[in-house]
Computed example of a mutant assay.
Amino acid sequence: MIFPKPTSYYEQGFKRSPALERAAAPFRLRNALTGAGIVAFCVSVYAYSILAVKQDDFSDIQLPAHVVEQQKEAAAAAAAAAKESSSKNV
């Protein structure tokens, strides 16, 4: 045989062998702490981003007149639909 069969840490059916368990044992705690640190960092960045965006106030920005009219028409249509549906339920 020219090329020897490669050894594997996995048994038949991709089951972890006892050798793999022994090889990975010293790194379990460190890997768990690293994973927890990465998750904590991601959650903190996400939370900071959400809180930073919630603080934005767009009340000083003026909308074009046609957008304001569309919003008023949509609100009137929604109010009419709500009134109509409430009168049907009675």
Rank of each mutant, 00 (worst) to 15 (best):
S86R: 15
Q62H: 09
R30W: 12
Y48V: 03
R30F: 09
F27M: 03
F41W: 00
P4R: 01
V45M: 03
L51E: 00
L33Y: 08
I61R: 06
V43Q: 01
Q55W: 05
S59L: 05
K5P: 04
E11D: 10
Q70L: 10
T34P: 04
F14R: 10
K54C: 09
R16Q: 02
N89T: 15
S85P: 06
A79Y: 02
P18E: 07
A75K: 03
L33C: 05
P4N: 04
S86D: 13
A79Q: 08
D56K: 05
Y10D: 12
A36H: 11
A47R: 05
S85T: 10
L51Q: 03
A77Y: 14
E69H: 07
E84Y: 00
H66R: 07
F3P: 10
S49M: 00
A40T: 03
H66Q: 09
F41R: 00
N31Q: 01
A19T: 13
G13V: 00
R28N: 04
L51M: 07
A76K: 07
I50M: 04
R22G: 07
S44Y: 01
K72V: 14
G37H: 03
P4K: 00
Y46A: 11
A74Y: 05
D60T: 14
R28M: 04
Y10S: 07
Y46I: 02
K88R: 11
E21C: 04
A81V: 01
T34G: 13
Q70K: 15
K88I: 07
L20V: 06
C42W: 10
A36R: 01
Q71L: 15
A82G: 15
F27G: 00
F14T: 00
Q70P: 02
K83G: 10
L51P: 12
